[in-house]
Design a binder for these strands. Structure first.
Lengths: 233, 233
DNA sequence: ACCGAAATTAGGGAAATCCCTTAGCCTTGC
DNA sequence: GCAAGGCTAAGGGATTTCCCTAATTTCGGT
C-alpha cells in the first residue's frame, strides 16, 4: 500500500518523470502527477514532480487513499476540476496541508481506463485565479486528455503495472475451459462443448485453481479476470 | 479553443447526431460515429451520421461484432488508427463494402471507458491521403479525445446504458457475500464469517446471479469484477 | 399509519462440484 | 531417445452448491 516512485524504475525509454516536466513547461503548469491503480491489488503506484517533502507528507498521511480528487476521478469518465471539490472537508484539509509546501489551489485530475480494469489518474496544477484557470483549462484540456491517455497507455505497455498480470501460465486448454466456466457453463456443459469428459474438465479446473492459488472455481475465475487471462462474459 | 461544449447539448438522442455533424464540420471530417457497449449484455448501441444505407448494410451484415476497428479499440487504451488495420482481411472486407457507400478509407477509433466497465467507441473518418491524414490527426487528436470523453460521459449520464448499469444494484449484503465468495470462501465459510445460515448465503448468491444475469456463481463473480462491483482477491 | 416491495433470514432435498487416485497418449525440449 | 509436462479419461465418496418455498424485517411512498 505504498506509493512507488516509478521514475526510479529503469525504463527502457525516457524517464517518465521528465515527461511530466515537459508537460508542465509546455502548458504553463506548476506540477503534474500520475497515479496508476493496480487492478488486482488495488494498490496505487505513482510518480510526480511535486516537491519531495510534499510527496513524503502526502504518502505519510495516506492521502492517496482519501484524496477526493483521486476518488472522484476514479469514478468519473470526464476530468474532475478541483474547484468542484472545494466544499469537501477532506479536500480542504489536503489543500490546506499542501499550501505549506507551495502546492497550488487550482488543479484537475483526468481519469483514463484500460480494458482490464486498470485506471490511470493524471493530475495537473497551476497557481492562478479562477478566471485564468478557466481560460487555461479550456485551451489545453484536449491536449491534457491526450497526454493522459498517452501516459497511461505507455505505463501499461512498459510492464510496470502489468508485469504481474501475465505471470501465472495456464495452458491453452485451461484458459479455454475457464473462459467457458466464466461464461456460465457447467462442467458438463463445457465437456459437451469441447467433446471431452466432464471428469477431464474437472481436472483442468483443479489445475487452474492450483496455478492461480484459488480455493474455489469462482475465485479462480475472478483472479483470471483480474489477471486479464480471460474476459468477463 | 475549438472544443465544443457538450454539456450544453440537450438530452434527446437526435441532438447527439447533430453533435456528430458539428464535430465533422469543425474538424473537416466526413463522418463520425459513436458506439456504446453494454458491459452486461455485451450489446452495442450506437448513433452515426453515416449514410442510412451504409448504416443498414453494416448492421445487416453484423459488422458491429466483427469490425476490427471496434474490436481493437475496445481492447486498447490509446486511439486506434485504421491504417494499422489494413492488413486484416475482415477490415479490408468492411472497407471494401464501405467504398460502395462512399465511406472514406482514413479513420480513427477512440475508446473511452467508465468506471463500470462501460466502453464508448468514437470513430471519425476522412477521405484524404495518408500524408494529409497524418497531419490532420496530429492537429486534432487532442480535441477528438476530449470530444470522445465528453460524448461518452454525456451518453452514460443520460442514456439507457446508465439505467442498465446502475440498475444491477446489488444490495450491500449481496456485494459483501459475493466479495467473500470471490475471495475463495465457500457458502458455509461466508455463513460462519457473517454469522448467518449457509442457506441465507445461498439465497443472496442466487439473487446476485439473477441481478447480474449470470447462470453460475462463477459467472456472477466474473461480471461483478468486470463491473467493478467487487475486486478480485 | 399503512401498504407493498425489497432485503434478510432459513429448511429440505436434488444436483453438481470437488478431492484423491490411476493411467494412456502426445508434444516439446534437452 | 528420454524426460517433462499437457491432454485425455475414469471411479467413488465427501462436500458444496443449487432450487423451491416461506417467514420476518426494513423502508420508501401515500
Amino acid at each position: 500500500m505504498s506509493v512507488i516512485d516509478l521514475s526510479k524504475i529503469p525504463v527502457p525509454e525516457q524517464n517518465l518523470r521528465s515527461y511530466l516536466d515537459t508537460v508542465c513547461e509546455t502548458y504553463e503548469l506548476d506540477f503534474a502527477a500520475y497515479a496508476g491503480i493496480d487492478p488486482i491489488q488495488q494498490t496505487i503506484h505513482g510518480f510526480v514532480n511535486y516537491p519531495e517533502d510534499w510527496q513524503a507528507h502526502y504518502v505519510k498521511q495516506g492521502f492517496q487513499h482519501k484524496d477526493p480528487a483521486l476518488l472522484m476521478a476514479s469514478r468519473s469518465i470526464a476530468p474532475v476540476d478541483w474547484q468542484r471539490l472545494r466544499k469537501e472537508s477532506m479536500f480542504e484539509k489536503i489543500l490546506l496541508a499542501g499550501q505549506e509546501f507551495g502546492i497550488p489551489e487550482q488543479g484537475l485530475t483526468i481519469p483514463v481506463r484500460g480494458p482490464y480494469g486498470d485506471v490511470g489518474l493524471f493530475s495537473v496544477t497551476r497557481n492562478c485565479t479562477d478566471h485564468d484557470w478557466k481560460l487555461l483549462k479550456a485551451s489545453i484540456l484536449g491536449d491534457l486528455q491526450h497526454a493522459a491517455v498517452h501516459l497511461h497507455d505507455h505505463v501499461m505497455k512498459t510492464n510496470i503495472l502489468t508485469r504481474r498480470l501475465t505471470h501465472p501460465s495456464l495452458s491453452i486448454r485451461e484458459i479455454e475451459i475457464l473462459q467457458w466456466v466464466a461464461a456460465g457453463k457447467s462442467q458438463q456443459d463445457v465437456a459437451d462443448i469441447l467433446s471431452i469428459s466432464n471428469r477431464t474438465v474437472e481436472v483442468h479446473l483443479r489445475s487452474c485453481r492450483m496455478k492461480l492459488g484459488a480455493l474455489t472455481t469462482a475465485q479462480a475465475v475472478g483472479r483470471a479476470i483480474g489477471l486479464s487471462m480471460i474476459h468477463p462474459v
